[in-house]
Write a protein that binds this DNA or RNA. Structure first.
Lengths: 253, 253
DNA sequence: CAGTGGCGTTGCAGTGAGTGCAACACTCAT
DNA sequence: ATGAGTGTTGCACTCACTGCAACGCCACTG
């Protein structure tokens, strides 16, 4: 809509790939160097980009700080966090909280496993949308046309032999997940890692977030992990109750 | 420099305070509603803002994802991380890694304490610049005029009775820190929390990052924490060596 | 249910902000 | 020295951005 802003914002993902110099930015944007310079300067004034000692630009600190505030303001996160911690204390495994937003699912909170073997993930990282248990729950709740449209436009990378292979299989899986009210990922993203997930709902019953417990095979088998399902669902329901205002937040017990 | 981009970027910190509707954004920017609308639309197309169900805008997912990539691309972080983990395994306390950038110091990595009592902090959060041990190290290394200028323009909030009260005291503290090559924060930010920190230097000897170990009084006294200083310094030096290319990265031992 | 106020949205004419050019300054290699 | 490769500046042109006014839409409300 606004050409100048559009160009300026296009610089950010470009720099996310790695530091770039003025010439490269101008080239990638398809504009004159002087134009790119002015855009970069404006971004710089706002701290969105940083000029390192070799004169190249990279993403700046303000961006990180803003993202930080953005996450703190997601009220579901603040409500859920103590519940996630308690669940982690009970089962010891990695606990994740994720939300859906504009064709992406991303982790917004995480409590690390207390076992020495940990899985790799980071808050803020978009999840493997076609296989992650939390993604299935969040997408399963979308209106049908939106869900179909999204499923069609997605890529279906074969992380493992158990990854969801294509859109029809994915849609079937989503139907199943919606019906049963919980989801799993059994080695669909990384061969040896299993997850079990449950939805968090708002007052209107819509799924606003999803949480999961993940553990590698070497710690517990998939079957053992599934025995945690009732606990995970109870936790998710407790968060739902508090989020939708049905249950007042408990005083720290 | 560029009015349109400048205005658009000004929207982001505004939304970081909390969701806002079109009228409020226009008012705060001092522009017409239609202008604000176009800026917001452009931001929206890039995923920087999100329009929630009540039509108000808040910061979007792409912003969080970008910040994520920004941090992953800081090479000091990748190099330091295994060292931080090892240090945490040895002492059990919370370990932080921080960098200075454009008048701010922010945490870019963290390994959680293994004790049940943890301190609050988050990756990406700007630190209390006038009291944090890592901040002292990073600022102490700035060129003198820059250091003085920054010290003058800072606020000196009295978090506790031991907080640095004003610019002259802060500059004296920085001189001391620069001379001794390490820094502490003994209850200057939170009454019961102490930190000990050491600098990480690049090939040219300039401080590029700082790391710290933090623990609350209830776990170890300040004196006990100080006995960890040699270990912290050795770890910082090991990271320095690897970062500046003197020591090749070890194979996982 | 017509009336009213508060929102977001659209089309348009005017103009000033953004653009690209060309020349310049600087730093490295050769 | 000489050259190629950077980033930077000043300027004339013009097109993209601006603000206005009118419109559509919902939620109240008397």
């Amino acid at each position: 809509m606004s050409q100048t802003v559009d160009r300026a914002l296009s610089i950010l993902p470009l720099l996310a790939e790695g530091p770039a110099d003025l010439g490269k930015v101008a080239e990638r944007l398809g504009v004159h160097k002087s134009t790119a310079l002015r855009l970069l300067r404006t971004l710089h004034e706002h701290g969105m980009v940083y000029r390192q000692s070799d004169q190249r630009y990279r993403l700046g600190a303000r961006l990180i700080a803003l993202a930080q505030e953005a996450m703190e303001n997601l009220d579901i996160r603040g409500i859920a966090h103590p519940h996630l911690v308690r669940l982690n204390e009970q089962c010891g495994h990695t606990v994740h909280l994720a939300v859906y937003e504009e064709d992406e699912v991303l982790y917004i909170d995480k409590v690390e496993s207390r076992y020495p073997v940990r899985m790799y993930s980071r808050i803020g990282k978009p999840v493997a949308i076609t296989v992650a248990a939390v993604a299935k729950l969040l997408l399963a709740d979308l209106p049908e046309h939106e869900r179909r449209a999204l499923a069609e436009q997605l890529d279906y990378p074969l992380y493992t032999s158990r990854s969801t292979p294509n859109a029809p299989a994915f849609l079937r899986e989503l139907d199943k997940v919606r019906e049963q009210g919980w989801a799993t990922d059994l080695g669909g993203h990384e061969e040896s890692i299993n997850c079990v997930a449950a939805p968090i709902r708002g007052a209107d019953g819509r799924v606003v977030a999803a949480m999961s417990v993940s553990a590698p095979n070497v710690v517990v088998t998939a079957d053992e992990l599934l025995t945690l399902l009732p606990l995970v669902r109870r936790t998710a329901d407790a968060i739902s109750g508090e989020y939708s205002g049905r249950t007042p937040a408990k005083d720290t017990p």
